[in-house]
Simulated scan of single mutants.
Amino acid sequence: MPQCLVVDDSAVMRRIARSMLQKLGFECTEAADGAQALEAVQRSAPDVILLDWEMPVLDGLGALIALRAEPWGQKPRVVMCTTLSDMERIIAALEAGADEYVMKPYDQEILADKLRAVGILD
C-alpha cells in the first residue's frame, strides 16, 4: 500500500485529504507544519507528500527546499497545494523540487490525476 504524508496546518484539510487518499488506496500520516513534516519523513519516508504552502513554523516551500537538500530527499514525490494560483509561486515550487502542483479546493478526481502524473497511482 503506498504511503502519503499529508501536511497542512488545517486539521480539517488534513482530514479531507486523508479521506480522499484512503479511498484511493493510500496509507496516510499527517503533519501540521513543515518542521513536523521533515521529522516525519526522517522517521519513515513516504512515497508521496501532499504539502501545503502556507503554514506556520516552516512553510511548504521551506520544507520542500530542506527536504530536497537531504541526500535521501529526492525519493518522495511532492505535490504542493495552495489556494494561490500565482504563476511565480508555481514556478518557484517546481524549481525547488515539487513534482506537481494542485490548487485548493481540489476533489478526489483532481488529486488522483495529480498522483497519476507523478507516477504514484495507476
Rank of each mutant, 00 (worst) to 15 (best):
Q3F: 02
C4I: 08
V6M: 04
V7S: 07
D8N: 03
D8I: 05
A11N: 11
A11W: 10
M13F: 08
R14W: 11
R15Y: 11
R15G: 03
I16N: 03
R18H: 07
S19P: 05
M20A: 01
L21C: 05
L21W: 07
Q22V: 11
Q22K: 07
Q22I: 08
G25R: 07
E27I: 13
E30Y: 09
D33F: 10
G34H: 02
A37H: 09
L38M: 13
E39I: 13
V41P: 01
Q42H: 12
Q42I: 12
R43I: 07
P46V: 00
D47Y: 06
D47R: 03
I49L: 13
I49Q: 00
I49F: 02
L51G: 02
W53G: 03
E54I: 12
D59P: 01
G60L: 01
G60Y: 01
G62N: 06
L64K: 04
L67I: 00
R68W: 09
R68F: 10
A69F: 09
A69L: 12
E70S: 15
P71R: 09
G73L: 08
Q74G: 15
K75N: 10
P76V: 00
V79N: 01
M80K: 01
C81D: 10
L84Y: 09
L84R: 15
S85E: 07
M87T: 14
E88V: 15
L94N: 02
G97W: 06
D99F: 06
E100I: 00
Y101Q: 10
V102D: 03
V102F: 09
K104I: 04
Y106F: 15
D107G: 02
D107F: 02
Q108C: 08
I110Y: 13
A112I: 07
K114F: 09
R116W: 01
A117Q: 12
V118T: 06
G119M: 07
G119Y: 08
L121N: 07
L121P: 03
D122W: 04
D122Y: 06
